[in-house]
Every structure is written in structure tokens, then in C-alpha cells.
């Protein structure tokens, strides 16, 4: 299954960018700006994660990169080609698992088979791949079932399995693990890792930070059509991993006044998110912050009802990035 994959992948030299995105904009109907100046490059064999809330612009970005939508501004090169001129050539070398369902009205086996035919895979090879994928994705019992009769997770498995019927250089996965159980999710991520080790480049959108942590080499946090954080997982952990997250809940008293006073005394790299009587403080000086919290509590005569201090996680990076006024850090 990987023979042609390797041969097509070799057409793009190792470490050469397979995706170059520069100041990319896209607006729907000229009004709603879904992408606002996105820039990054992705190298061959890399797993690139796009994290973001619903409506952040992840799927629009995937649609633009897979030639389904045209950028309204900026430049894009996929495998060294311009999608405006070479859309069909690009599409022959990419695979896309879209966020929504996409099936033909036939059985699981029929869907894989038809997909292989559409991609021009010769009969013997097609049948071999189909059977191997049915086995690999645990679809043996569902083989003769109609795709529309399957559960959400089963459908997702078929959709991902089907994409491996053809060879590709870049695989775009738009939230591929939604609805999958833990075992199937891990199995899918391992399958993708296996393909990556053979030269496949993967662009992957997800809400699930554990998945991103498990699979991605680099991560971009996107919100409001802009990239807020972009770096390797190692760098992100180094940058933010030393920080601590302090979660605080106040008792009766002037909570807004307390948090206002706290904000004015925080260091330049600290950040505070407040909701009602609770706050989340991200700091790299937890001792100083702790004494500050206690001092202000005494000064403002307000009790700290609950306080939790923990190591920073990728989830914190994500949450603080997408909060208004949150941190930005981009290294495209």
C-alpha cells in the first residue's frame, strides 16, 4: 500500500515545504472573514495540528488548502503547485477526510470499492487494499452493512479507512476521531503514525489536546481566523511547561476589585482570566503569585475559598491562547 506513496513522496525533497501558506485570507460572500492573514509552512513527513474552537476557521483553512475554496487574498502553494492553476494535479496527490459524513448509498465494502475505482486503482490491488483496510479498521463484521445504517463512530472509521484506498503525499484530516471509542482512536492515531514514518505529511484538526500531544510535531492554535500560537510541541512545552496554572475562587466580598488589583500587580508574562468569582492565573513565578494572592486577600478583606496550583498543560496553552487578550506566539 505504501509503494506508490513512497515514490510520489520522493518527488518532493525531504525537508522541502509541501505546504506554504502566506497571509491567507478567506471571506464568505465578501462579508464574514473566516481567515485573516494565516501564514505557516509544513515540511514533508510532518504532522501539523490545527487546534481551535468551533468556528475558529480550521475547516475553512482545510477547504482552502484542499482547493475546495479559493483564498480571497494571500498565497498558497501545495506540493510546490499553485491551487488556482494546478488544482487537479494537487488533488491527485492529497487525501482528505472531511468533517462531515460522505458516503455513497451502498455497503461498507461497496464504498471502499467504489472509492478505489474513482481513484483508478487496478482491480487486484484495489481488492487487496480494501480487504486489508477492512481488517485494519475493524470493519469485518460491518463489511456488508449499508454505510448509512452504521453508528457515528463506525461511519467515521469507514470514512478514514476509505481514504487509504489511494496513495497520497499529504493527508488532511478534519476531526477524524470524533465519535471513535478510545481503542479505535488510538488504533487510528497509530495507523497515521505508521504512514507518517513512511513519508506521509499530515494536517490534522482536532479539539482533543491529548491527540494533538500524541500525534503532532507542531501545533497551531487558531481563533477568529488568525493563528495565535504556532510552534513545535517541544517548544510549546518548554515555553509554557515551566509555568504554573493557579485556579482561585473567592468568597463573599468585592471579587471584581480583588481581581482588578491583582491584574495591576502581575508580571508582564503572567496572564489572568476571570469569570465571576473565579480566576485562572498563568504564571512562571508561582511563589510570588501566591504571596500576592494572600496579601491582597488580607488587604481587601476577602476570603480565598479555593486555590489549586498545578503544572501547565497543552490545554492551558490552548485556553489562554483563545481567551481575549490571551498570549500569542507564532514561529511559522
Amino acid at each position: 500500500m505504501t509503494g506508490r506513496l513512497a515514490s510520489t513522496a520522493q518527488a518532493t525533497p525531504a525537508q522541502a515545504p509541501v505546504l506554504e501558506v502566506k497571509d491567507l485570507h478567506h471571506s464568505y460572500d465578501g462579508k464574514r472573514e473566516a481567515l485573516q492573514g494565516v501564514s505557516f509552512t509544513i515540511r514533508r513527513g510532518e504532522v501539523f495540528g490545527l487546534l481551535g474552537k468551533n468556528g475558529a476557521g480550521k475547516s475553512t483553512l482545510i477547504k482552502v488548502m484542499t482547493t475546495l475554496l479559493r483564498p480571497t487574498q494571500g498565497s498558497l502553494r501545495v506540493l510546490g503547485m499553485d491551487p488556482a492553476r494546478d488544482g487537479q494535479r494537487i488533488r491527485r496527490r492529497i487525501g482528505v477526510v472531511q468533517q462531515g459524513e460522505s458516503f455513497d448509498f451502498t455497503t461498507v465494502q461497496g464504498n471502499l470499492d467504489i472509492y478505489g475505482i474513482l481513484w483508478g486503482i487496478p482491480k487486484e490491488e484495489r481488492e487487496r487494499r480494501r480487504d486489508a483496510l477492512i481488517q485494519r479498521f475493524g470493519l469485518e463484521d460491518l463489511r456488508k452493512r449499508r454505510s448509512f445504517d452504521l453508528s457515528g463512530g463506525q461511519k467515521r472509521r469507514v470514512q478514514v479507512a476509505r481514504e487509504f484506498m489511494h496513495d497520497m503525499d499529504i493527508l488532511f484530516l478534519d476531526e477524524p476521531t470524533v465519535g471513535l471509542d478510545v481503542i479505535m482512536r488510538r488504533s487510528l492515531l497509530d495507523s497515521i503514525r505508521g504512514e507518517v514514518s513512511r513519508g506521509l505529511t499530515v494536517v490534522f484538526t482536532t479539539h482533543n489536546l491529548e491527540e494533538a500531544d500524541y500525534l503532532c510535531d507542531r501545533i497551531a492554535v487558531i481563533d477568529g481566523g488568525k493563528i495565535l500560537v504556532l510552534d513545535s510541541l517541544e517548544n510549546l512545552k518548554r515555553l509554557y511547561g515551566g509555568k504554573r496554572t493557579m485556579e482561585i475562587t473567592l468568597g463573599a466580598g468585592d471579587a471584581p476589585g480583588y481581581f482588578q488589583a491583582l491584574k495591576t500587580r502581575l508580571g508582564p508574562t503572567d496572564s489572568l482570566t476571570v469569570e465571576d468569582r473565579s480566576g485562572i492565573l498563568l504564571t512562571d513565578e508561582p511563589k510570588h503569585a501566591l504571596s500576592l494572592l494572600v496579601e491582597l486577600s488580607q488587604k481587601q478583606a476577602i476570603q480565598i475559598e479555593w486555590l489549586n496550583i498545578r503544572k501547565n498543560t497543552l490545554e492551558d496553552v490552548f485556553l489562554h491562547s483563545v481567551e481575549p487578550g490571551g498570549q500569542t506566539h507564532a514561529d511559522p
Partner: peptide, 17 residues
């Protein structure tokens, strides 16, 4: 049906115009 059930988008990110 292809628009409703996602196959049009799937085919158009494949090798077809």
C-alpha cells in the same frame, strides 16, 4: 444526494473537476 450526503465535496477534493 451528493451535496446532501457529502459526496460532492469528497469527489471535488479528489482527482475530478
Amino acid at each position: 444526494a451528493d451535496r446532501r450526503y457529502g459526496m460532492l465535496a469528497q469527489l471535488l477534493v479528489g482527482p475530478f473537476t
